[in-house]
Computed example of a mutant assay.
Amino acid sequence: MQLIPVIDLMAGQVVRGVRGERSAYRPIRSSLCESSAALDLAPRLLARAASDTLYIADLDALMGGALQFDILAALLEHLPAAQFWVDGGFRDAESVEAFRQRLGPHAARVVPIVASESLADADHARRCLDTHRTHCILSLDRRHGSLLDAGGCHAHPEWWPDRVIVMTLDRVGADTGPDLDTLHSVQALRPDVQLIGAGGIRQDADLQRAAASGARAWLVASALHDGRIGVDCTAD
């Protein structure tokens, strides 16, 4: 199972995500380095996770602001061998296409995350996933047992692309363990898709359970920053 380190970006800084309560997020304090700048943290996170892929959640965009494209552009330049998965609060097919056009030659290295919490309605959700099926990942989002899904993505597995994230926001940064029950329920709807878990990883035992569940990858942040999992890469 692949580890995908996560950077939550807010107002130009990396913040620590806890339970999806974004108004309470604060600049990260990490064992990897003293800085909360993405350019400083990103290579260390990738090294600690032994990964070539970085997930970026642009919280400014997710909360209705502008996407922090300058930071993404700098990361693309600074980490030429890395791949990036980017949740930029995309609401429809047009916003995904505009993002890909803006990336220019870097588009092949960036996968847009189409999140159920951001899609405007069923028509936009269906058309977005149909238009961008071959190069996007769908994130099925929920919090405290409630679906964040105005577009009805959970109810229409026939819309899903080949890769799907099972995002339980109240498990993010909460040290409560991975949400394997929800992963299994999604898996039963579309056994053919590649599932990616998110949140709840505390230690290696959780990673072993997540891998045994059939997940192809897992999104992780806090346990990497705290040094509870991953390769020791604190030395330069």
Score class of each variant (00 low, 15 high):
residue 20 G to D: 10
residue 37 A to V: 00
residue 22 R to Q: 09
residue 207 L to R: 10
residue 48 R to M: 08
residue 133 R to E: 13
residue 93 A to M: 02
residue 216 R to W: 03
residue 20 G to F: 06
residue 220 V to A: 08
residue 99 F to C: 08
residue 236 D to I: 00
residue 36 S to T: 09
residue 224 L to Y: 09
residue 53 T to L: 13
residue 5 P to F: 04
residue 156 H to P: 06
residue 167 M to G: 05
residue 141 D to F: 13
residue 1 M to Q: 07
residue 54 L to W: 07
residue 169 L to Y: 09
residue 70 D to A: 13
residue 142 R to T: 10
residue 205 A to V: 00
residue 73 A to R: 14
residue 163 R to W: 05
residue 116 S to F: 01
residue 191 P to T: 02
residue 198 A to R: 07
residue 151 G to F: 03
residue 134 T to H: 14
residue 139 S to Y: 07
residue 15 V to S: 04
residue 215 A to K: 04
residue 100 R to M: 14
residue 183 L to K: 02
residue 69 F to H: 11
residue 180 L to R: 07
residue 178 P to N: 12
residue 233 C to E: 02
residue 121 D to F: 00
residue 26 R to P: 00
residue 179 D to K: 11
residue 228 R to P: 00
residue 39 L to E: 15
residue 91 R to K: 13
residue 11 A to D: 14
residue 30 S to H: 01
residue 65 G to Y: 01
residue 15 V to I: 02
residue 217 A to M: 04
residue 109 R to N: 01
residue 108 A to K: 04
residue 53 T to N: 10
residue 158 E to S: 14
residue 62 L to C: 12
residue 183 L to S: 08
residue 103 L to Y: 05
residue 146 S to E: 15
residue 119 L to E: 11
residue 161 P to W: 07
residue 30 S to I: 00
residue 218 W to G: 02
residue 33 C to N: 09
residue 60 D to V: 00
residue 152 G to E: 09
residue 68 Q to Y: 03
residue 135 H to I: 00
residue 62 L to W: 03
residue 67 L to Q: 06
residue 127 R to F: 11
residue 190 R to F: 05
residue 38 A to F: 01
residue 18 V to M: 03
residue 215 A to L: 14
residue 150 A to D: 15
residue 113 I to R: 05
residue 175 D to C: 10
residue 10 M to L: 13
residue 154 H to S: 12
residue 62 L to Y: 09
residue 39 L to G: 13
residue 29 R to A: 13
residue 89 G to F: 03
